[in-house]
Computed example of a mutant assay.
Amino acid sequence: MNCFPCCNKNTQEKATSRKSLRKSLKDYHDKYHDKKILASFANISFKTDSSRHRYITEEINKIGKGNITATIFSYRELCVATSNFNPENMLGEGGFGRVYSGKIEGTNQVVAVKQLDRNGFQGNREFLVEVLMLSLLSHPHLVNLVGYCADGDQRILVYEHMVNGSLEDHLLDLAPGRTALDWNTRMKIARGAAKGLEFLHEAANPPVIYRDFKASNILLDKDFNAKLSDFGLAKLGPTGDKTHVSTRVMGTYGYCAPEYALTGQLTAKSDVYSFGVVLLEMITGKRVIDNSRPTEEQNLVTWATPLFRDRRKFTLMADPLLQGNYPLKALYQALAVAAMCLQEEASTRPLMSDVVTALEFLATNNTEEEGGGGGGEDDNINPEEQ
């Protein structure tokens, strides 16, 4: 693999592992998924936000063709589960609405209940996409959809409860007294999130473009395993001889790939760019857009780009909260991966499978002495040389 020479030592082993992975994914899809089911998203029709519960149910039954296993909850059941959406049970709030912790009566299953803002952006289309995507696509690094509610004008999604919240909570919104993530945990999370994207891009058929990859959408379980959540903006990727999908520009400012932001032409490489942004946030501890910082540091990618060219400054990019406790070569290689993902030209960015391979190497080979010192010339790896 030309992009990441650090991994070439185990080429045969990796090839065997990748072949096994691809076979297992293929077997999974041959057994559980019909290509036509997911492909029918392309022809899905959507009504206005005044659509009723019956229409939502009809669409899910039509496209899911009996493959939807998510439970249909009544609004009353979810009121009971969340103690009438008690503010004390609120886990978080965003542009989509509020998320509450809850416990399903009868099973005592602890869940996260996302009540979509009825006046917000996420209407019937996004609600349906999320229900269908998470029902038809199952993977250890995608959050599990327990069920949903579409009573009247209520649009509520019920997920497995991820006890460690989001990556943003542990990286960009660090509460006072909370310990910063160590280097190995950051690489573990990066690897898991990358595997989620790899599954969407290279195993789903047709491929799925996530379109909203960011720290707040990466959820963490009790062991800090990463799972992608919030699929309302996901799109089916190009198939056949098509090179891209044309769509209105959606997502979060700072994470969107430049070619997508300019033209609305969406490809899997758009997700790769967003992954590079988040990986850079994980390495530096800085938010991609932060107007509270000095002018030259407010845009993380703009600040980092010239530093990628000077290996002597690589250690300046490490999160100060790491206190120098990271393997030096791993830092350089992680920066190399981020730099490749953030290439201006989409065609020069790696595939997510290549990113996963590189991160597998980093997550399992952190055996050298830790420390953020300078290191010799042979220890430095310039991202621009990858």
Rank of each mutant, 00 (worst) to 15 (best):
Asn119Ile: 14
Glu59Cys: 13
Val146Ile: 15
Glu93Arg: 15
Gln109Ser: 10
Asn86Arg: 07
Ile60Asn: 02
Val80Lys: 07
Val146Phe: 03
Val110Cys: 01
Thr57Met: 13
Val146Ser: 08
Thr71Asp: 09
Gln122Ile: 11
Phe121Arg: 15
Leu78Ala: 02
Asn119Ser: 14
Val110Ile: 07
Arg125Thr: 12
Glu58Lys: 11
Ile104Gly: 03
Phe73Val: 02
Asn108Cys: 01
Glu58His: 08
Val80Phe: 08
Val143His: 07
Gly94Arg: 03
Ile68Gln: 02
Asn84Tyr: 08
Gly95Met: 09
Glu126Thr: 09
Asp117Cys: 05
Phe73Leu: 02
Pro87Lys: 14
Thr82Leu: 04
Leu116Val: 05
Val99Gln: 12
Phe73Gln: 03
Val80His: 05
Leu137Glu: 12
Phe127Thr: 09
Gln109His: 07
Gly120Val: 15
Val113Arg: 07
Gly106Asp: 09
Asn89Ile: 02
Gly106His: 09
Asn144Glu: 09
Asn84Pro: 04
Thr57Val: 15
Gly97Asp: 10
Pro140Ile: 09
Glu88His: 13
Gly102Ala: 08
Tyr100Leu: 02
Val143Glu: 03
Gly66Phe: 13
Ala81Phe: 04
Ile68Val: 15
Asn119Gly: 05
Met133Trp: 02
Lys62Trp: 08
Leu145Thr: 06
Leu91His: 09
Val131Gln: 03
Ile63Trp: 10
Asn61Phe: 00
Gln122Ala: 15
Ile68Gly: 10
Cys149Thr: 07
Phe85Gln: 09
Asn119Ala: 15
Ile72Phe: 05
Leu136Asn: 11
Val110Thr: 07
Glu130Leu: 06
Leu137Pro: 03
Tyr75Leu: 01
Ala112Glu: 08
Phe127Asn: 10
Ile72Thr: 13
Arg125Ile: 13
Ser138Pro: 00
Ala112Val: 10
Gln109Leu: 11
Lys62Asp: 11
Gly64Thr: 13
Leu134Thr: 08
Asn61Ala: 13
Lys65Asp: 11
Gln122Tyr: 05
Arg76Pro: 00
Arg125Gly: 12
Ile72Pro: 00
Leu136Thr: 11
Thr107Gly: 08
Ser83Tyr: 06
Leu134Ser: 07
Cys149Ala: 04
Glu93Leu: 06
Gln109Gly: 00
Val113Ile: 12
Lys114Met: 08
Met133Gly: 03
Thr57Cys: 12
Ser101Val: 10
